[in-house]
């Protein structure tokens, strides 16, 4: 509890970086990357990426949007009342499962008529979104959905190292290894741990020691860090080398 009570230090979370070069290429996202490179082959010009929190959906979305010159939208920001204009560019919609249903349906229809590709991203696959509008539900179930698989140990290791570097906190290799062994094996857990570690170090006014790392680990919420809904989607894929 020491850590939490000392959290008066102003948190500084660096804005997430979505540069193509920062994408960690791993077997777990190989299928998604392959699909994103071949927009012309998407059935009906539509594709959906799905996978647990922090698995890289938004990152992939940004990389694709930049390459396609696509408009990047966030689902919750779509306006159900507004009648959208037929899109003149490709569309990338993040958190698409949180979009108002009618707005999403119209965008899909108009983009389809205008011949513009649409990329959706959400945690669950479109077939499992809670949708009441039958027209939208059937379109979503027809979309090619590509899962991002469970993160490999190597991916988690690289992710932790990059997040710590972005936050400019020095953490020794043994402490990083310690964290990786004890943290839940999900990107979400790694991200949360990096943020908590940053704050704890700032609040304590000292470098990250093993003791501090243990305190952060002990204080992590037990829930929400495990999302293995895709854990087995690619369990059988060959473990090729991970490229940074």
């Amino acid at each position: 509890m020491k850590v939490r009570s000392a959290q008066l230090a102003l948190p500084f979370d660096p804005p997430p970086r979505f540069e193509p070069a920062d994408l960690i290429e791993a077997p777990s996202n190989a299928a998604a990357r392959a699909w994103l490179e071949r927009t012309a082959e998407w059935p009906a010009g539509r594709l959906a990426l799905w996978g647990p929190a922090g698995c890289g959906k938004t990152h992939l979305l940004h990389v694709w949007a930049a390459r396609q010159g696509a408009n990047l939208l966030r689902g919750p920001q779509l306006d159900a009342e507004l009648m959208p204009a037929p899109p003149e560019a490709a569309l990338a919609i993040d958190d698409a499962d949180a979009a108002p249903e009618l707005a999403l349906l119209r965008l899909l229809n108009l983009a389809g008529e205008a011949g513009q590709p649409v990329l959706l991203a959400a945690r669950p696959p479109p077939a499992r979104w809670e949708v009441r509008l039958p027209d939208l539900a059937s379109r979503l179930r027809a979309i090619t959905a590509v899962a991002i698989g469970a993160a490999e140990e190597e991916l988690l290791r690289l992710l932790l190292r990059r997040l710590l570097m972005e936050r400019q906190i020095a953490v020794t290799e043994p402490i990083q290894a310690f964290l990786l062994i004890h943290l839940p094996r999900t990107p979400a857990a790694i991200r949360l741990a990096a943020a908590r570690l940053d704050r704890a170090a700032l609040a304590a006014g000292r470098a990250v020691t093993r003791g501090l790392a243990e305190a952060v680990l002990a204080d992590l919420p037990a829930r929400d860090l495990h999302d293995n809904s895709t854990a087995t989607a690619f369990a059988n894929s060959p473990r090729d080398r991970i490229i940074v």
Binding site: I181, H182, P184, H226, N228
Partner: peptide
């Protein structure tokens, strides 16, 4: 290990 995201110590 394959089917959950629990850490190995857990």
């Amino acid at each position: 290990k394959q089917l959950t995201s629990r850490s190995l110590p857990e």
